[in-house]
């Protein structure tokens, strides 16, 4: 059971928090608000899936929030022009894949550090977006919100779809050789090369997947409201990184599981409502998020130190 220690401890913390809420703030469990709250997390969940892959392959991507914003505006403008949703989705996915590929080229083939590359692309995309859109919201046609369905049907669809995607990627990661190659490259790129795996190609592919998922997440975000806010992606990358780190994905690569990141995301997402329900001021959310990240890395650091000595 030691193998699942990190994932289980995060899940344990989540269950504990939910139990606290059940006792002291049972309002939290009213179905409709709970459903809405969960739905609001689906875009972050999709990004977390991608970020988990990126971190397993021993990289990081800070530009996903900006990519998300660009894709949201692309999808929003296309939808606003009256094109069917599927066209908007395809465009968003393509835009995301292109941005991811740019990161991938610079990081995988030019060997530049992912932190600085993605910082630079983050600034570039974010400013391009500001320049282009000037902060203006995009009004969407009525049939876009909730795919033209009722709100609860749309919410259930989103939740079902994104959890299905999580399960699917999780399965691929475990049961297809490509998924195992991500772990292998993140664990030891040189050993991977000796085993006949192409580390550059693997890293590049992961960044393209990350970008594509950012496009998907942007569309899932779009259908939740009647407008597109061009600033909707701000700080989302932090949420995704925090979820993965808390969920046991090692910054040093090669380790981590999607369901751990999922539990990490839910834990972080529950902190804010928990604060409100427990009458703690909600302004502490970001500080607590930072603290949770630090605690998670400190715990990992201490554990790996004990293992090596």
């Amino acid at each position: 059971m030691n193998r699942y220690f990190r994932e289980l401890s995060v899940t344990g913390a989540l269950v504990l928090l939910l139990a606290v809420l059940a006792i002291w703030a049972p309002h939290f469990y009213q179905p409709q608000p709970l459903l809405s709250r969960f739905t609001a997390q689906t875009p972050a969940l999709i990004l977390t899936i991608g970020m988990t892959l990126v971190m397993i392959v021993r990289q990081i991507d800070i530009s996903v929030g900006a990519q998300f914003g660009v894709c949201a505006v692309v999808a929003g403008l296309i939808s606003a022009s009256g094109a069917p949703l599927i066209v908007a989705l395809a465009a968003a996915l393509a835009a995301g894949a292109i941005m991811g590929a740019l990161n991938g080229v610079l990081i995988a083939w030019m060997g530049l550090p992912s932190i600085v590359v993605s910082l630079a692309t983050m600034v570039t995309w974010a400013e391009l977006l500001r320049l282009f859109q000037q902060g203006k919201f995009i009004n969407l046609p009525a049939n876009v919100q909730w795919f033209g369905l009722s709100q609860s049907a749309g919410q259930q669809g989103l939740i079902f779809g994104s959890v299905l995607l999580l399960a699917g990627v999780s399965w691929l990661l475990k049961n297809r050789s490509g998924g195992r190659h991500i772990y292998a490259v993140g664990s030891d790129a040189e050993a991977a090369r000796l085993a006949g795996i192409n580390p550059k190609l693997t890293t590049f592919t992961v960044f393209v997947i990350m970008g594509t998922l950012a496009g998907l997440a942007a569309v899932l975000n779009m259908v939740q409201s009647p407008q597109v806010d061009p600033k909707c992606g701000v700080a989302l990358e932090l949420r995704a990184i925090a979820a993965a780190v808390v969920g046991g994905v090692a910054v040093s690569g090669g380790r981590g599981r999607l369901w751990g990141s999922f539990a990490g995301l839910l834990l972080l997402a529950t902190i804010n409502p928990a604060l409100t329900f427990l009458h703690v001021e909600a302004y502490w959310e970001k500080a607590i998020q930072g603290l949770v990240i630090l605690l998670a890395v400190i715990a990992d650091g201490l554990r790996s130190r004990r293992q090596t000595s």
Partner: peptide, 13 residues
């Protein structure tokens, strides 16, 4: 990287 990412969030928070 990850330490200062944590404090990035912590200090602002």
């Amino acid at each position: 990287l990850i330490v200062t990412l944590g404090t990035y969030s912590l200090f602002r928070g």
